[in-house]
Simulated assay, not measured.
Amino acid sequence: MQTMYKFDFGTETPGHEHIKITAETLYSPELGYGFHSLSNVSAVNRAGEEAALTGDFIIPLNAAYQVDVADGLYTLHLLMGDAWFDTETSIRGTEGQMLLEGKLIPAGHFERYSMTVPAVQGRIVLYFSGRAPRINALEVLPAPHACQVFLAGDSTVTNQPADGYPYAGWGQMLPAFIKADAAVSNYARSGRSSKSFIAEGILEQIREKMKPHDYMLIQFGHNDQKRDEGRYTEPNSTYRDFLRRYVDVCREKQATPILVTPVHRRCFDGKGRLENTHGDYITAVWELAAEEQVPLVDLAALSLEYFNRLGPEGTKSVFMWGRPGEFIRFPQGVMDNTHFQQRGAAQLADMVVGALKSLGLQPLSLFLR
């Protein structure tokens, strides 16, 4: 299986050492690359533009492009633009992770954008959207030594499935804030507690892939409060004990653990002030971070201030609150006080990145946009 590719998208003769991708390049396992569907893919050539990579391009309108490679980390270098018109492109990656959101490029300009992503189950898939998306060229290069930022957590962190749009976890939006020096690997899973995440072997999956100088952000608490045997932990004993195991795995692999206090739910009292439904679980994370001298992102405090500022009505634009007919996939409406819609998840990811910058961890601080 080839691990390095250079693709030239459009209609004309490919650039030097590039593989030409046209509007008829449909993915097949034998080919190892191509679009999943050609129904919304078109190729354009700007007459008079002689540059091999900028004179023609593909418009991938809500289209997915797949490249088969061995599992691992890869840096992608994308060239995007149009000689005649403004463009706007968004790109999602594995499990809907946001890689690039609403990238605007003025007419006559071309920009290179780089990111590092994990290949999962032998493939990289890029999902293109936006009002006027473009792709001129793409390079796929192995990046085995790139830093990996692992996420361990629950549904507030996870990559929510596409059929639940606009549901999103803050970890799903985090890659858009990370430079090409690092990749985000989101192992957070809905419904998991610090206990069940370990029992299901997910922490062990992270341990197997973790290497020195990687990072792991750890946020649990929502499901640790559930009273079933498989998930419940007591904040001042078992919850701290299980979180300590994540810290131990990082130290065993010479990586850096970062504890994250659980983000608040949308729960307001009669005076319009946010209620703390996590209680001693937040305190336990603080105490463990101090005891183990582990960096801490206090997302509980950040979300408390943010949600109080927005108030009961304003926070509906952060959480999955939709009127009947507002969201295509929820025609009867939805009222969810725990999970986020995409714009809210992006705000929380931005808060996490701001907190990480404040910590001044090196080299992580250099990898944050």
Score class of each variant (00 low, 15 high):
residue 1 M to E: 14
residue 8 D to R: 00
residue 9 F to E: 04
residue 10 G to C: 01
residue 14 P to I: 03
residue 15 G to A: 04
residue 18 H to E: 14
residue 19 I to M: 09
residue 19 I to C: 05
residue 23 A to F: 11
residue 28 S to N: 09
residue 29 P to Q: 05
residue 32 G to Q: 07
residue 41 V to L: 12
residue 42 S to A: 06
residue 43 A to M: 03
residue 44 V to G: 11
residue 49 E to D: 15
residue 49 E to C: 14
residue 54 T to C: 09
residue 60 P to L: 00
residue 61 L to N: 13
residue 66 Q to V: 11
residue 69 V to I: 09
residue 69 V to H: 08
residue 70 A to R: 13
residue 74 Y to V: 03
residue 79 L to Q: 02
residue 83 A to T: 09
residue 95 E to Y: 14
residue 96 G to L: 08
residue 99 L to P: 08
residue 104 L to D: 07
residue 105 I to H: 04
residue 108 G to V: 07
residue 109 H to P: 01
residue 111 E to L: 08
residue 120 V to G: 00
residue 121 Q to P: 03
residue 131 R to E: 10
residue 131 R to W: 04
residue 132 A to F: 01
residue 133 P to G: 01
residue 133 P to W: 00
residue 140 V to M: 12
residue 142 P to S: 04
residue 146 A to E: 15
residue 147 C to T: 14
residue 155 S to P: 03
residue 169 G to T: 01
residue 183 A to K: 13
residue 186 N to E: 14
residue 188 A to H: 12
residue 190 S to W: 00
residue 191 G to P: 01
residue 193 S to G: 15
residue 196 S to C: 10
residue 197 F to A: 15
residue 202 I to H: 08
residue 203 L to K: 01
residue 206 I to F: 07
residue 211 K to P: 09
residue 212 P to N: 05
residue 218 I to M: 04
residue 218 I to R: 04
residue 219 Q to I: 07
residue 219 Q to P: 00
residue 228 D to P: 03
residue 235 P to K: 03
residue 236 N to G: 14
residue 237 S to F: 06
residue 237 S to A: 14
residue 245 R to L: 15
residue 250 C to L: 12
residue 253 K to L: 12
residue 258 I to K: 02
residue 264 H to I: 05
residue 266 R to F: 02
residue 277 T to D: 07
residue 278 H to W: 13
residue 279 G to N: 10
residue 281 Y to G: 05
residue 282 I to Y: 07
residue 285 V to W: 06
residue 290 A to D: 13
residue 291 E to Q: 12
residue 295 P to I: 13
residue 300 A to C: 13
residue 302 L to Y: 09
residue 305 E to R: 13
residue 308 N to M: 07
residue 318 V to S: 05
residue 321 W to Q: 01
residue 322 G to W: 11
residue 323 R to M: 12
residue 330 F to R: 09
residue 338 T to P: 04
residue 339 H to W: 14
residue 342 Q to L: 10
residue 346 A to F: 10
residue 346 A to V: 11
residue 354 G to Y: 02
residue 354 G to P: 09
residue 356 L to C: 03
residue 367 F to N: 02
